[in-house]
């Protein structure tokens, strides 16, 4: 029975099927918000789904110079990594399916894989534009990854645990950690924007400079897989930040005496609302800025984001040292 349940968890909810559906929905929300910010109409709700179907049905092409095996394998890696990362993030009460001490670190590393996969994809496409994009992607990686890791360690230090579920439980029994470290939350959202390679950090696939950048040689189902991977990365990133800073499934309601279904409903609703809120922030950032140059981006990350995250970390350790928590 428990094996059957685990398979269900993996394949249907909250694993594979739910994740794909939710990722496509999140992409729709993001595109729609972006369009409405710009006073446009935006896509209909099934548009991301239709895009994926269209890409899946397209002719499969690999550049002659490119390494066929690598080009085919890389999108799968990216896709698998982000799907795996999602399994460790709790989305309703105490249901930490595959949770263990240190899953936060695993999620962080799994979230780095898509960028590395994108770099390899761009590099192996043997196209000058994708190679320039690959170089920019890897340069950027070092810039945003440092502050991202640093600020996400804060909640772990406060909650005295490397497990995400413990951090969430700590928040529901105390308070949301955003109150304690608003600075960390802001840095995390900005760094996530860099991780997802969106404006103002869409330097690797700058449309007007290097055409499509990284994925310029990718067509058909490989591109579909990459796009899915990036969408899921957005869901995982939003869910991770909401779990670490916004209290995850916590909704200020005591659920002790309620039926499991009600517990699930409340927790799941909180999860949806919080991830959508973070997507709203991400879409706003995307609409607000112009694209930076790669040197400006690296300067910005090391001059502002990294020091801010270090200050945040020092404050947290200070609080911890004083024994206030």
């Amino acid at each position: 029975m428990s094996i059957l349940l685990e398979v269900l968890y993996l394949l249907v909810f909250p694993g594979f099927l739910f994740l794909i559906a939710y990722a496509l929905f999140i992409e729709y929300v993001d595109r729609k918000l972006y369009a409405r910010f710009q006073h446009r109409v935006g896509p209909p709700i099934l548009q991301p789904f239709a895009d994926i179907i269209k890409l899946l049905s397209k002719e499969d092409l690999v550049p002659k110079k490119a390494d066929r095996k690598m080009v085919s394998a890389i999108p799968l890696f990216a896709f698998a990594a982000v799907i795996t990362a999602f399994l460790y993030i709790p989305i309703w009460f105490n249901q930490s399916f595959f949770s263990f001490q240190g899953d936060l670190i695993v999620v962080l590393y799994l979230l780095s894989i898509p960028t590395l996969a994108l770099f390899l994809a761009g590099w192996h496409s043997s196209n000058p534009f994708s190679q320039v994009g690959a170089m920019r992607a890897i340069t950027q990686l070092f810039a945003y990854e440092v502050p991202f890791f640093l600020v996400l360690l804060g909640p772990a230090i406060i909650a005295d645990s490397w497990s995400i579920i413990d951090i969430v439980n700590f928040q529901s029994s105390n308070f949301w950690l955003i109150l304690m470290m608003p600075l960390g939350f802001i840095v995390a959202v900005i760094a996530l924007q860099g991780k997802l390679e969106r404006i103002p950090f869409d330097i690797p696939d700058a449309e007007t400079e290097i055409v499509g950048g990284l994925l310029v040689e990718y067509v058909g189902r490989r591109l579909a897989l990459f796009r899915m991977a990036i969408d899921i990365e957005m869901v995982v990133g939003a869910a991770l930040i909401s779990a670490l800073f916004l209290g995850g499934f916590d909704a200020f309601i005591s659920v002790a005496g309620l039926s499991p279904l009600a517990q699930f409903g409340i927790g799941f609703a909180a999860f949806l609302v919080k991830t959508l809120f973070i997507v709203f922030l991400l879409a706003s950032i995307r609409a607000l800025f112009a694209r930076l140059r790669i040197d400006q981006m690296v300067t910005f990350c090391f001059k502002w984001l990294a020091p801010l995250s270090i200050i945040q970390l020092l404050l947290i350790t200070g609080v911890k040292y004083m024994g206030w928590f």
Binding site: F37, Q38, H39, R40, I199, P200, D202, A206, E207, T208, A287, L288, F289, A290, R291
Partner: peptide, 16 residues
């Protein structure tokens, strides 16, 4: 010019 530097929101507003 806004589009060339990736500032698509300004691009959409001016063209509107």
């Amino acid at each position: 010019a806004a589009h060339e530097v990736g500032f698509d929101t300004l691009f959409m507003y001016t063209w509107r």
